[in-house]
Amino acid sequence: MSVETATKPMAADLTIPVDTRAASLRAIYIIWYRDILRYWRDRWRLVASLAQPLLFLIVFGSGLSSSLGSGTLFGARGGLSYIQFMYPGIIGMSILFTAIFGAMSIVWDREFGFLKEVLVAPIDRWAVAVGKALGGTTQAMIQGLILLVLAPFVGVKLSVLTVLAIIPLAAVLAFGLASFGVMLASMMKSLQGFQVVMNFLMMPMFFLSGALFPLTGLPGWMTVLTRLDPASYGIDPLRRVVLSDSGLSSAVVDRLGLTINGHVLPIPLEVGVMLAFGVVLLGIAVVMFQRRD
């Protein structure tokens, strides 16, 4: 038994912690890439997740439009129909669910053992959280942006510039919610809590986000809850931008938009809130991941 084999690879600087930064960046890339690969490979999931928004648009859109009588909200002149109102909300919904589910696939990875392979690698744990958040973000963006092809069918006009503005807004919303998903996953040790998360976090988050109804003129308690819902800050700018080419007066759009104390929030502020939310939650997830055992 030779001594050399054991001692050779050991440099003299064993006291300096090994630099894992470059490896961690590579890890982020491959963790992200794996998620995208799996996403493309799982065609059924893609189709299924398009079916749901379509269903919402058709059922709610036509159902509610006709029961609202005139088909316009607040008798808005310039004629905003409910389906037009709801359309950006449905894009937001798609992003919300895809981002959170995508990021929460960590729980599946844990359940089926793959996470161990990642956690024992010589990389930093934050890379796992970041890679997963970016994976969820990308999937959600694709999922949301695909729905833009429906614009002509719901009577929403989109210019190229508008589409270019939608992309970063979709990214910010997706990132915030994917970070939320990673954080949830970092706290769940098994699939057991998943149903609870779905029913008591994701559904309320969706319903209170302003995706389905304007967040104005609500009862007081509900006004508070909707303003506490981070998704509200991502869906509102999306709606304003998506509808900006449809010939609506800005007064109408503002009246439907997110306000605090009657003040209309500027889009950059909303984006800031969403980004901050994402960064803080991702930070919490990183800390949770760094704990061993």
Partner: peptide, 30 residues
């Protein structure tokens, strides 16, 4: 392990070892 303390420098230990777990740990979609 490989002359490195597992508590103080886990990352360096991980660079030196390969591990096959008792339970499955592959991504079977890939």
């Amino acid at each position: 392990v490989a002359g490195i303390d597992v508590v103080h420098d886990p990352a360096r230990v991980r660079q030196k070892i390969g591990l096959v777990f008792q339970d499955p740990s592959l991504d079977d979609q890939l």
